[in-house]
């Protein structure tokens, strides 16, 4: 007979959440980001193809679309949860063990939350929602 109390197994929900955000952020950055950089960052500025952000009227019009707003929120904010983890461990690997501490975790993942809130603010204040 053991006097030890039975260990209660609790699901690590916080762990699950941050790993989910890390993996999804990495996936969205991998699948969505390169084409944006090619089209909006290279082909558009070089004048090779017409791009939606080259003129005010086309840009503000598409930014008003609620589906586009939701898409841009996912595209911009989710990868930051991936980046936060990557950059924190880059610091650890470069010899900064302080990056493993709880305040560092709060700082890095908190920054991802701040970017998310900022993105929501910008998307809702830039162009009024329109389905046209």
């Amino acid at each position: 007979m053991s006097a030890k109390p039975k260990a209660v197994q609790k699901p690590a929900l916080a762990h699950l959440f941050w790993w989910f955000m890390f993996s999804q952020g990495g996936l969205f950055a991998a699948v969505l980001l390169p084409v944006h950089i090619v089209v909006q960052g290279i082909l558009g500025p070089l004048g090779i193809v017409p791009v939606v952000d080259r003129h005010y009227d086309t840009w503000i019009s598409i930014l008003g679309n609620p589906i586009v707003k939701l898409y841009l929120l996912v595209l911009i904010s989710l990868p930051f949860f991936h980046f936060a983890h990557r950059l924190r461990y880059l610091l650890v690997d470069l010899g900064v063990p302080a990056a493993k501490t709880v305040p560092a975790q709060a700082g890095f993942y908190g920054a991802a939350v701040v970017v998310t809130l900022l993105t929501i603010y910008v998307l809702f204040t830039t162009a009024p929602i329109s389905l046209g």
Binding site: V39, G44, P50, V52, D53, H55, S61
Partner: peptide, 8 residues
């Protein structure tokens, strides 16, 4: 296609 198609 969306980024280019909605441009002018």
């Amino acid at each position: 296609a969306v980024l280019i198609g909605f441009g002018r």
